[in-house]
Structures are given as structure tokens and as C-alpha cells.
Design a protein around this nucleic acid. Structure first.
Lengths: 329, 329
DNA sequence: AACAACTTTGCAAAGGATTGCATCGAGCTG
DNA sequence: CAGCTCGATGCAATCCTTTGCAAAGTTGTT
């Protein structure tokens, strides 16, 4: 069916070894010969059999990408970035969606790990011991989470939060609420920590509304607590929740930003499309995907030679219509 | 490193062939022996090397899934469905996002095709000749598009459109606008055809606003034309566009549904969260992904024995807040 | 002119699993 | 009990590529 290296060898009048080298170690073969081989390969439409290559090299040329829930709009962007960068490096990407199922995830990941050279894990809530275990057997990069010395790509959310607080302060806000995401989420802890210190430094009063599911409904559920707390501004764990807040506030005829200013995190597409458009801490989601691939490939090339196994990507507050001057209380 | 079939064989005191058969053709080996082999495999944590297996069987155990743009909220759901069903059948899924780039797509698809047993193609606008070419060399299933006798999974949008028209008619609407998607899109043609016939049958006047990019901005751009046309209702090619319509109508203080009723197609997550919530033709996106995998696996098992290579999934109008009684004109 | 060093190429083994064919033994039939 | 069938197992070839080592050929050095 498909041409093999032997047929190319015959066509070019050389041995299979020479063909192999002409393709994957060009400097080892004479220019003229290489040229002849390449033309023969071209003529026959030859492409190396990845399975055979993988069998002997021990490398598959594949990466694995694990996400908890693709319908959460944060992840598709990351996937796009991973995908694009992997393709540039001639790697293919296995995608696994764990559907937020911790139990299934473990098995799934283990199965996938055998078919790839390395894994990228976006799993904000996987138990730590599982990650530790996995990191021992696999080349692993985590996105949006930091754990031990596992290589990771994270966002400098702390800085984004600081920007948000500075923005609110400049608008005259003195009281801010935090609508938290899942208790187990690393980035939630990271953000709330940053918020505490930033609010403290700005002498702003902080009302922590608690932990909510990181979905639209979570924001809806938090809205009434936020209103009751009497704050003039609120920052949500992510944009989807912030949109939930906006929705519930609208239902209650609480004017945004007149009565209360709302800020999200992530800058998902819908944030620019809500009414009012959402002020948000923008994070480079595709960029994170690309960075994760870069890091992973570097680790694969020289497992111990990579100096910086932690990438921290900058964040940027995007001011839109959902924040405004604090109401007078 | 990882256990091989030989080590399992030694552990169980049998030959490698027997181990292989115990695992993949259980009925060929004696119960007691099989039991012994399975326990040995378990003890050593053995899992077959997929590359080696693929080399000899010619099957990879992988599927390829190609989508045009993951950030379009329609696709993540399909991907989830594909993924889930593939995993159940012990297949892994390669994901490729073509980023709406036709030129890149061709190469990408061809590269991917060599590493998989079959491909699932969600590519509403890929040129027909490319698909024809691809279908010759690969086992292929298309989602949301029909072309020649290439196996496909599509939605019965026509029926959904009929339901939408019936709904509008029941609310007293006599004039409806259509906000079209890309000219090259198969599903757009499918829907507009259904709309023409349904509107005709209901003696409703149809205003076709033209073709727009299938994004939020497309809906925004179409809104003013729709208003100017004097219709009392509008159906958009998809939900994202319908949300764009809602947004622009709100900006112009056109009341939905009082002044104009709006209907979308797809039932993406955000549709339930807009204000007003969007009436939409709901399609089983995950279900389509699963059906595509089922069809693909059936084709792989018996290339010519599959009777029905076309699955058409039902659609259902979801009535929410964006449709109401027609205003009196 | 002889030898060393180097470049270029081929040979053959290896990687792990599957599978056609041969073998062996047990059970059945007449 | 001889002969036959059939189930269970092992042997060895095979899938395609990569790569260590050796051979052959070339160039340069003394």
C-alpha cells in the first residue's frame, strides 16, 4: 500500500540505511546521494512509518493533552495553542477530556502516557499524589497549576489581581467582594492570596463570598451574597462566573457598573459580548498552550539541562464597561 | 523499562504467542492457562506496546478528529462526544484544529491520516475535491455535512427549522428574516432550503438578510438590516450570531421579544444565559460525536457491510425568552 | 609510497507484538 | 487398540525503521 523505505532504497539505488539517514541525519550522507534519495522518496510519496520508527527509537512523536472540561471556554484556547505549536514541531496531539471525573482521569492518563513522549496536564483539581506519581513515570508539564518541582506554565494572576485592585481603587472603591472558585483549585488559592495582599495594601475592605462552582450558575448563586454584603465592587474567580453575576444582578435591577462594578478573570470570548462588556484580567491562553509545548519539548531533548522549568506568563487588566466610579454610600 | 510480552510469557511459563492470544483471542487458549497469563500480566503491569502491535496489524488504535475552530462553542461539545465514545472503544483521539485555514488543512489532514485508522471531519467549508480525494485514501466520516456518498452524521436541521417556523406562526408572526452563515457552508444551504419551504408552507414572508461570518460580529452586523426590513421575527444561522443580534438590538433599544423575536440554532451554553435567554433549535452535539465514532468503527470493522452510512440526528426547538407574541404592525 | 584519518555506504540486529503453520497430546470412534 | 479429529500451544517469520559496526573508498601526511 504505502511505500516503504526499502522501495525508496531500490528506486534510488542505495540501501535502506542510506535512505533512513538521508531523511533523518542529512549531514551523514553525500550531497548527491541525498538528493537522489529525496527525489525517489518524493516520487513514491514516501513517509516514514511512525509506528516502526517509534518501536526502535522509543519515541512516538506524540504529545498528550489532558483537560478537565472542554466546554469550559478557557480550555479550547489552550488546546489551540498546544495544537498549533505541536504541529510546528511535527508532533501530533492526543486530546483527552476527563469530564471532571477524577477517578476516570487516573486511568485515562495512565493509558495515554504510554502512547506519548510527554504529557500536558491542565487539571486544576487532580489530587497531588496522583500528579507526583505521574511525574515520576512521565515527562510532564502542568498548565495553570504549580506543584512541587513539576515543570509548569502559570499565569501571573497575582499581578492581574493587583491591577484590578488598583483600577478599583482609582475609581474610588473601598470595599470589594471575592467570588471564589472551587476550594481544591490551585489557581483559586493563588488568586485569593494575591487579592488578600493587594486589598490589604490598598486598605480596601475584602468580603470573601465563599467557594462556588466555577460555572455561570456559581456566579448566579453568589450574586445575592455580594449585594447583601454592601460592597461596591466584586471580582470573580473567572469570567464565566462574572457573567453569572451580571445576569443575576440584571434580574435584580442592580445596575452595573453604577451600583456595583464587576471584574472577571480569563478574558473568554463572551466577556467582550455581554452587556455591559466585562472588565477582566486577560490571560494568554493560547500562549500558555504554546509555552507548555515548548517547555515539554525542551525537557524531552535534555531532561536535566532545562534551566527554567517554570514559565510565568504576564496578565493584563482589560477595562471594559462593567467597572465604573464607585457609588456613594 | 516497561514489561514486554516475553517477560509475561516467562512469568507465566508459556510462550509469547500464548500470551498474545490470551489477551486478544481469549477463546483460543485454555481457561487455566489464560488465567495464569492474565495474572502474570497483571503482576508485571503489562500493557501491549501499541507501536509494535500497529506495525504488524496495520492498525493504530487511533482516530483523528479535525475541527475548523475550537473556540467556536459548537465544536468542543462534538469533541467531547467523540472523545468519550472513542475511549469506551479503547481508541485514542488525535485532535487537529485547522484554524479555518483551508490550505493548512489539506497538509495537516494528510499527515494525520497516516497515523490513524480513520478520520472524523468537521469541516463545513473544505472544498469538495479535497474531501473526495481524502475519502478515497482514508476511512472517513463527516459531521454536519453531507457530500456524495461519504459516510456522515448530520442534524435534521430542516425539521428544527420547521419547528421554529411553526412556533413563530403560532405566535402570530407573518414575516421572518433569515440571517445566513457563510455561503460555502453546507449546513447553511441546508437550513436556508428548509426555511424557504417551511416559510412558504406557512405563508410567511421571508426576508433573507444575506451571508455573514458565523460569529457574534456577524449577528451584530446583520441586526440593522433585520430591523429595517420590518420583520417581527428572525432566525439566525447559529446561536453565536443570534447572540450578536440580541446585543445589537439591545443597543438600539429594540425590545426582544416584544418588538422582535429571535431564534438561533445549536443550543450552545451561552444561549441559556443571555438576557433574554435564547430560543433555539437544539442539536445533540455530543451525540453527533458519539455517532460519528460508532459509524467510523463500524466501517473499520466491515468496510462494505455497513448498511446505513448516514445518520441523521433529531433536532428540537427549545423555547426560551427571546420569542414571544408578534407585535401588531 | 605507505599509512592514517576520515567520509560514505551497507550489513545485520533490534525493537515488541501478531499469526500461519507445525506439533503434541488427549479424547473419541469403530 | 488403532486411527482420527480437534483443541492447545510453540516456533519462527513478519511488520518497517533505526543504528552500531564494519567495509570500502578517498584524501592527506610524512
Amino acid at each position: 500500500m504505502r511505500a516503504t523505505i526499502r522501495e525508496v532504497a531500490r528506486e534510488a539505488g542505495v540501501s535502506a540505511s542510506t535512505v533512513s539517514r538521508a531523511l533523518s541525519a542529512p549531514e551523514m550522507v553525500n550531497d548527491a546521494t541525498r538528493e537522489r534519495v529525496l527525489r525517489a522518496a518524493e516520487r513514491l510519496g514516501y513517509a516514514p512509518n511512525r509506528a516502526a520508527r517509534g518501536l526502535i527509537t522509543g519515541r512516538t512523536g506524540n504529545l498528550g493533552l489532558i483537560v478537565p472540561d472542554l466546554t469550559n471556554p478557557f480550555f479550547p484556547s489552550v488546546v489551540k495553542g498546544v495544537q498549533a505549536r505541536a504541529r510546528e514541531a511535527d508532533y501530533a496531539v492526543f486530546l483527552a477530556d476527563t469530564d471532571e471525573d477524577q477517578a476516570a482521569e487516573a486511568g485515562l492518563v495512565r493509558a495515554l502516557a504510554k502512547q506519548v513522549d510527554g504529557l500536558i496536564l491542565c487539571s486544576p483539581r487532580a489530587p497531588e499524589e496522583e500528579i507526583r506519581d505521574l511525574a515520576e513515570h512521565t515527562t510532564l508539564v502542568m498548565v495553570n497549576r504549580r506543584f512541587g518541582n513539576v515543570p509548569s506554565v502559570v499565569f501571573d494572576s497575582a499581578d492581574g489581581i493587583r491591577q484590578a485592585i488598583a483600577h478599583l481603587q482609582a475609581l474610588g472603591h473601598r470595599r470589594v467582594a471575592w467570588v471564589g472558585g472551587p476550594r481544591a483549585s490551585w489557581s483559586n488559592r493563588d488568586r485569593v492570596r494575591a487579592l488578600r495582599s493587594a486589598a490589604g495594601a490598598a486598605s480596601m475592605e475584602l468580603f470573601v463570598a465563599g467557594h462556588f462552582p466555577p460555572y455561570f450558575e456559581g456566579g448566579v448563586a453568589a450574586a445575592d451574597l455580594v449585594v447583601a454584603s454592601g460592597v461596591t465592587s466584586v471580582i470573580a474567580y473567572n469570567d464565566v462566573m462574572a457573567l453569572g453575576l451580571l445576569s443575576r444582578l440584571r434580574d435584580r435591577d442592580v445596575q452595573v457598573p453604577h451600583d456595583i462594578s464587576v471584574i472577571g478573570v480569563d478574558d473568554i470570548q463572551m466577556s467582550a459580548m455581554s452587556a455591559p462588556a466585562l472588565t477582566t484580567v486577560s490571560v494568554g491562553k493560547e500562549q500558555a498552550g504554546r509555552a507548555a509545548v515548548d517547555l515539554l519539548l525542551a525537557l524531552l531533548q535534555q531532561p536535566d539541562g532545562v534551566r527554567n522549568t517554570r514559565r510565568e506568563l504576564p496578565t493584563q487588566l482589560l477595562v471594559r464597561g462593567s467597572t465604573g466610579v464607585a457609588r456613594v454610600t
